[in-house]
Computed example of a mutant assay.
Amino acid sequence: MIKKEDLRIVFMGTPEFAVESLKALVENKYNVVGVVTVPDKPAGRGQKIKTSPVKDYALEAGIKVLQPEKLRNEDFLAELKDLNAHLQIIVAFRMLPEVVWNMPPMGSFNLHGSLLPQYRGAAPINWAVINGDKETGVTTFFLKHEIDTGNIIDQKKLPIEMTDNAGAVHDKMMVLGAELVLETVDNICNDKIKPVSQEDFIKEAIVLNPAPKIFKEDCKLDWSLDVEITYNKIRGLSPYPAAWTELIDANGKKTSLKIFETEIITDKNLLPGQIETNDKDLIYIGCSNGCLKINTLQLAGKKRMTTKEFLNGFKNLNDCKAE
């Protein structure tokens, strides 16, 4: 056993998702001796320097911040070693080389946004929603060589509602993940963990779903597919990176359109990609066995808007098709 104030922790993370876990550790009086996050970088039209949310919180909390360009850099490794961490906690950060994750005597554990071994990879939240899963969760596990394959420490389950998009699941998982990180560290302090190999979770009949990084071409909609598949894909990519389609007018001109929110309509029959609108506040697009009512969308170079706002400026939509 080790007292929380004696346990030296280095926390590694970047986005807002990771801040919740770091905040939970700090507010529960754990001794976070350092934070590792990405370097500052210029962003936006004015190229103003942007800092990571984790850095912002760490500075407010008075925690030392390291921002290495390369994780194998000798100066960084020396600084990291000087922190004398017993344990490293990783939440939404980069892949770590062994020289980093193997440094602390009590190991390094990661928080992953799925019930491992399901959805190993970069986009577990998106893929769980895209696949229409009714449940996901969070997992803490010790790092080893192969990505997302280390021994599982603990898990918490999270239901996915049919109306949830990836953003909603992300926000709920952020809070649940912080709870699990805290419980995991508590149990490590009290010698109550019994890590289990992921192989023990894999049964002969189980199909493991991957969660690879999502690229633009993965986000294009295929209106010939089942209406529920298309609905799930849209909510699984909303709000980011966002599903998209092309509107093709009577002259063959193509306009790119992102779609964020829809509703399934089963009592209206349209051909796949066929568009029907009242030119005021309703847009329907056909799928293979029903259609989707489009609620929020975005033209390239424009802001996100409601269907009503969109139709105020986009005319002759009935003459277009989605492809």
Results as ranks from 00 to 15, higher is better:
7 L>W: 04
8 R>T: 08
8 R>W: 10
11 F>E: 01
16 E>D: 12
16 E>H: 06
18 A>G: 09
20 E>Q: 13
20 E>T: 14
20 E>R: 10
21 S>W: 01
23 K>P: 10
24 A>Y: 00
26 V>L: 11
33 V>K: 02
36 V>P: 05
38 V>N: 03
42 P>W: 14
47 Q>Y: 07
52 S>A: 14
53 P>L: 04
55 K>M: 05
58 A>Q: 02
60 E>P: 00
61 A>G: 10
65 V>L: 05
79 E>P: 06
80 L>Y: 10
85 A>N: 06
86 H>C: 09
87 L>D: 00
89 I>K: 01
90 I>C: 03
92 A>R: 01
94 R>P: 03
98 E>G: 08
100 V>W: 09
101 W>F: 15
103 M>V: 00
104 P>D: 07
108 S>K: 04
110 N>S: 01
113 G>R: 03
120 R>L: 04
123 A>I: 08
126 N>L: 06
127 W>Q: 07
136 T>R: 08
137 G>R: 02
148 D>S: 05
149 T>S: 09
152 I>D: 01
154 D>I: 02
155 Q>R: 08
156 K>I: 12
161 E>P: 00
163 T>I: 15
165 N>V: 12
168 A>L: 15
170 H>P: 05
172 K>T: 09
177 G>H: 01
183 E>S: 12
183 E>I: 02
187 N>K: 15
189 C>T: 12
191 D>W: 05
192 K>N: 14
196 V>I: 15
201 F>H: 12
206 I>S: 14
207 V>G: 00
208 L>T: 08
209 N>Y: 12
213 K>S: 12
214 I>P: 01
215 F>Q: 07
216 K>H: 13
219 C>I: 11
226 D>T: 11
228 E>L: 15
228 E>G: 02
229 I>V: 13
229 I>K: 14
235 R>K: 12
242 A>Y: 13
245 T>F: 14
248 I>K: 11
252 G>A: 02
259 I>W: 03
264 I>Q: 04
271 L>K: 12
272 P>Q: 03
276 E>Y: 08
279 D>L: 02
283 I>P: 00
284 Y>Q: 06
286 G>Y: 05
294 I>F: 06
299 L>H: 00
302 K>V: 09
303 K>I: 09
304 R>M: 14
306 T>N: 07
306 T>I: 11
306 T>G: 10
308 K>F: 05
310 F>C: 02
314 F>Q: 09
315 K>H: 10
